[in-house]
Amino acid sequence: MKTETLEGPPIESAERRHTGPAPARIVVGYGFWIFILSDMVMFSALFAAYAVLSGNTAGGPTGAELFNLRNAFILTICLLFSSYTCGLGALSAERLRQDGFLTFAALTFVLGAAFLFIEISEFAGMIDKGAGPSRSAFLSAFFTLVGMHGTHVSLGLIWLAFMMAQVAAKGLGAVVRRRVLCFSLFWHALDIVWVGVMTLVYLIGVQ
């Protein structure tokens, strides 16, 4: 019953697992998870502001007039598939497949950039129509919430570019693999926030 996951006799290794310090990967993941949750708390304040202000259109355009569900669907699918390719990239990194990681990371980058491009053109179209952030409390809250998510996606893309450069230059050592893990946690968490944005802002907004 000797497998590559087992080091030494089972009992000894089980003891080590329960009494010794957790592996660095677990500790790093936990620390980054705490950061992600604090980010979620910040987003929750923006969600609350949007929920409270979404009816205050000050005579300006409402969500039902502005939002295009086809566009929102494309944005959702872009981000969902980028989350998928990011997960496959993290899996390749875990299995020490450098080319696999770089390919999936490039796909993730392209999908994330497509998301950002469509979102920015949507914003530009709204501002052109006179529905900029200064038009009403509803639009201020909309641009703050969706813009904050877009800012996170932009920062994620910069981070992803750095990770690709690091993996290309340094290879997939333990430290780089942990950074890849943190990036994938960040990227998946952004997709979870987007599910909230898509539902609260776009789908409920057009009702």
Binding site: G29, Y30, W33, L37, V41, S44, A45, F47, A48
Partner: peptide, 19 residues
């Protein structure tokens, strides 16, 4: 991770529902 998530969900719920 689950305990931290539970605490995060509590805070998120309090902030949104409370506001």
């Amino acid at each position: 991770n689950i305990l931290a998530l539970a605490f995060g969900v509590l805070i998120v719920f309090l902030v949104i529902a409370g506001s």
